[in-house]
Simulated assay, not measured.
Amino acid sequence: MSTPTSRRKQKEPAAPKVPVSLTVAGLPEHDLENDGAYRAMHFKSIDLSSRRARTAEFEGCRFVDTAFAGTEMHRAELTDVELDRCDLSNMRVRSSSAHRAVVSASRLTGAAWSECAFHDVVFDTCRADLAGFRFSSFRTVVFRDCTLLEANFQDADLRGARFERCDLTGAQFSNAKMAGTRFADCTLAGIAGVTSLRGAIIRSSDAWGLVHSLAGAMGITIEDAS
């Protein structure tokens, strides 16, 4: 007997395979640069803000308390990486990929990850208000305990994503693909592009937050009882 889609146990993202032995990174030797290759390295308390790098590759790396604020990357590849307590605010990342990655307790305020591919990625306890993920694809990705106020997922493929205990107030989902996207214990008040949630799986307790957005999309006026 088949299990209903809404009750199937969703696959957990694969954990990063970070080597036990890592080379300690330092500046200027390991600064970001075009076509740079960074493998099995530990970046700790390093400021990599306001850099520009094309086709950089990161494999088996750990970043702790590292700043990327305002840094721009194009066609970057991040494989088997961990980012803990990092500042990724106002980053500009385009046409890049992240595979087997964990981003925890980090700040992504105002960051823009456009046309990117996320596979087996966990965002845990991150502040990502005003972050943008336009035209990006998510395959086996979890946003857990994240603040995503007014985050932009316009035209994103979220069919492989789930949101757990996230605040998505005012988030934008216009033209997103969301069949099978899961929301659990999330705040969904005031989201835009609510009609794109067709096929999404939402807990009953979360659905109340969609009432006004759905009514607005359907031209329904909700009046308070007199």
Rank of each mutant, 00 (worst) to 15 (best):
residue 90 N to H: 14
residue 109 T to R: 07
residue 94 R to M: 02
residue 131 A to S: 13
residue 100 R to M: 12
residue 93 V to E: 02
residue 98 A to N: 04
residue 99 H to W: 08
residue 122 V to E: 09
residue 99 H to Y: 10
residue 128 A to D: 00
residue 98 A to D: 01
residue 129 D to Y: 12
residue 114 S to N: 13
residue 114 S to Y: 02
residue 93 V to P: 00
residue 88 L to Y: 06
residue 123 F to G: 06
residue 108 L to T: 07
residue 94 R to W: 06
residue 113 W to T: 00
residue 128 A to Q: 05
residue 91 M to L: 09
residue 129 D to W: 11
residue 124 D to Q: 10
residue 120 D to K: 05
residue 119 H to D: 13
residue 111 A to S: 14
residue 98 A to Q: 11
residue 117 A to E: 12
residue 130 L to Y: 15
residue 91 M to P: 00
residue 95 S to R: 05
residue 128 A to C: 03
residue 124 D to W: 11
residue 131 A to K: 08
residue 95 S to E: 04
residue 127 R to I: 01
residue 93 V to L: 10
residue 102 V to I: 15
residue 111 A to E: 04
residue 122 V to R: 12
residue 131 A to H: 09
residue 122 V to F: 00
residue 101 A to E: 07
residue 94 R to H: 01
residue 99 H to V: 14
residue 101 A to C: 15
residue 116 C to Y: 13
residue 106 S to F: 04
residue 105 A to K: 09
residue 117 A to M: 05
residue 132 G to N: 08
residue 93 V to M: 12
residue 88 L to N: 04
residue 106 S to I: 03
residue 89 S to F: 03
residue 90 N to I: 08
residue 120 D to I: 04
residue 130 L to S: 15
residue 89 S to Q: 09
residue 122 V to P: 01
residue 89 S to E: 07
residue 126 C to W: 01
residue 115 E to D: 13
residue 110 G to R: 13
residue 98 A to C: 12
residue 124 D to L: 14
residue 114 S to A: 12
residue 133 F to E: 08
residue 129 D to C: 05
residue 127 R to G: 04
residue 127 R to L: 01
residue 119 H to V: 11
residue 108 L to A: 06
residue 102 V to L: 09
residue 101 A to L: 11
residue 123 F to L: 10
residue 114 S to P: 00
residue 119 H to F: 06
residue 105 A to P: 00
residue 124 D to I: 02
residue 111 A to T: 11
residue 124 D to C: 08
residue 105 A to W: 05
residue 129 D to E: 13
residue 94 R to G: 00
residue 98 A to T: 07
residue 96 S to G: 03
residue 117 A to D: 11
residue 90 N to R: 15
residue 123 F to R: 05
residue 108 L to S: 03
residue 96 S to I: 03
residue 98 A to R: 08
residue 115 E to L: 07
residue 114 S to H: 07
residue 88 L to R: 00
residue 109 T to I: 08
residue 131 A to R: 10
residue 130 L to I: 09
residue 99 H to K: 14
residue 89 S to G: 15
residue 106 S to C: 04
residue 115 E to Q: 11
residue 122 V to Q: 07
residue 92 R to D: 09
residue 131 A to C: 15
residue 90 N to A: 13
residue 99 H to N: 13
residue 125 T to K: 13
